[in-house]
Amino acid sequence: MGMQQTNTLTRRKFLGALGATGAACVAAGYLGVPRLAEAADAPAEAPVNVDELIAKEVGPGKVALEKVKIDTPARTENGALVRFPISVDHPMEADNYIAMLAIFVDANPKPLVGRFEFTPASGKAEVELRIKMAKASQVRAIAKSNKGALYGAVMTIEVAEGGCAG
């Protein structure tokens, strides 16, 4: 766990638009409003402030980069289908549990991918799904305990071919 976190931190540097994007994507949507421009390739803009989005969607406060693990390779061939398993190493007891987990892809037109709400009966705050990435991006998984403590993991994933992400 400790080693994994160190790796995650050293990978935080933001890689630019390395990945090609699908020609059919309107990839320049801003705050959820699709822009109907000529959009063969995604412009290298990231207008959404993801830190503010995290404060709004998960909660305000300092995120401790520990306890959360994103178990996926740092490079994906297909941005339309990025395997995304996330786990939180935290008790799930009646008065001390992970209440929420959220995923953000910084470079997607809409960075929020999803939120997951748990209860102590979940037993374990761990989910797996497949997500879309328009291009190479920093991805973040942020967890919140029932007491409001925030934990997170950050990594950069390179994308060989982008998916039409929302």
């Binding site: 799930m92 009966a121 992400a165």
Partner: peptide, 26 residues
């Protein structure tokens, strides 16, 4: 499960087509 909602996920269009999703319960 057992008469209670144990997990709720809220998604956007950035979840992949034909979505697979797994979670745990006790």
């Amino acid at each position: 499960y057992g008469g209670a909602t144990i997990m709720k996920a809220t998604w956007t269009g950035a979840v992949s087509k034909n979505p697979f999703f797994s979670f745990y319960l006790k």
